[in-house]
Design a protein around this nucleic acid. Structure first.
Lengths: 111, 111
DNA sequence: TCAGGGTGTCAGTCTTATCTGACAGGGGGG
DNA sequence: CCCCCCTGTCAGATAAGACTGACACCCTGA
């Protein structure tokens, strides 16, 4: 994933996804290896539904991916792993991205 | 400014500062040259107190700097300019920064 | 003296994100 | 059967951020 930001919306989505201490910790934890939700919830000491929401937010931004796997014993476990990304953030990059940025920031597609 | 993030708090501050369409536009505008507040407010079509708040947020994150200058005619004008930064964002960088990250994210200085 | 342009700050409102507890399942194993 | 561990989703409370209009103040030039 080259993470060549296509639009300002995309950049904004990634930035808002990362702008949270919980989500930073989630990325940090997942960068050491994939885990499933409940396990990660215990590890990070946070409420599972809350973790769930943050994971969805990260996934919506394309920073992590989750796969629901069925173990040998038939139980369903949802594993998450981080998507390798490299985002170079400079004023110039922001200026470029900001050209395609919705004024109100609603994120609606205006194509 | 090498922008070697010292702590996770710092990274978080920068990220939350950038995670806003208005502030991205502000950075974009300032990257083309310095301006003063009222001028920028007209240019970006936003309320001056609002812009003021966003500028303070950006300044607190160290992304812009403002200097109150006294023109020849004696009037006070506050100019802002962007601080050149280059932030490389990868899962590994986040993992490193997250080590020094407050659990509750209150942002209190714990040095 | 008055109009005009600037800065700085405030109380109050409104919108958004965050967080919690609880619930409905599915499946395995004692 | 009951107990345990997992997923997925919800309404509702709470906290945080965004935003507005108005005010006090400074200096200049007509």
């Amino acid at each position: 994933m080259a993470e060549v930001l296509s639009s300002g919306e995309e950049l904004l989505r990634v930035l808002t996804a990362l702008a949270s201490p919980h989500r930073l910790r989630i990325i940090a934890a997942l960068s050491e290896g994939r885990t499933y939700v409940s396990q990660l919830a215990r590890q990070l000491r946070m409420n599972r539904p809350l973790l769930y929401m943050h994971l969805q937010r990260l996934e919506a931004a394309g920073l992590v991916v989750g796969t629901l796997e069925t173990a040998q014993d038939g139980s369903s476990v949802k594993y998450f792993e981080v998507v390798p990304f490299a985002l170079g953030l400079t004023p110039e990059a922001i200026r470029t991205a900001a050209r395609t940025l919705d004024l109100d920031g609603t994120g609606k597609d205006e194509s």
